[in-house]
Amino acid sequence: MKKKKFLVFEDLSTSGQWLYLYARSKEDIERRFPEFYLFDVPPKRFDAAKAQIIENNPDIFIFDIDNLHGLLKDYVENRQKDNYIYQNPDKKRPFVDEI
């Protein structure tokens, strides 16, 4: 199955980060990154300028979940286990789009 590009938001606790993840399905992402926020339709907060920033910095903001590299690989291998929300997905805050 060909992979598709998904827009996710990573909660950094004091701020956040938009990422593109390539995966076969939404479920693949939800299983591996339950702490991330996955969007079928880009929210209002994510505009064309932010999409351009991602495209301009693929090493930092674009990942294939089956072949992770860089920061996200490190995150999964070392830090995901220390993430309180990853350990307690029921504590995940709702995403507020209207600021």
Binding site: E10, G16, Q17, I53, P94, V96
Partner: peptide, 19 residues
């Protein structure tokens, strides 16, 4: 912030609002 923010914030040019 953590290492994601350390790399991501300067690249993005702004501190993105959280959830």
């Amino acid at each position: 912030t953590d290492s994601d923010g350390y790399k991501g914030i300067p690249a993005a040019g702004y501190v993105a609002a959280g959830t």
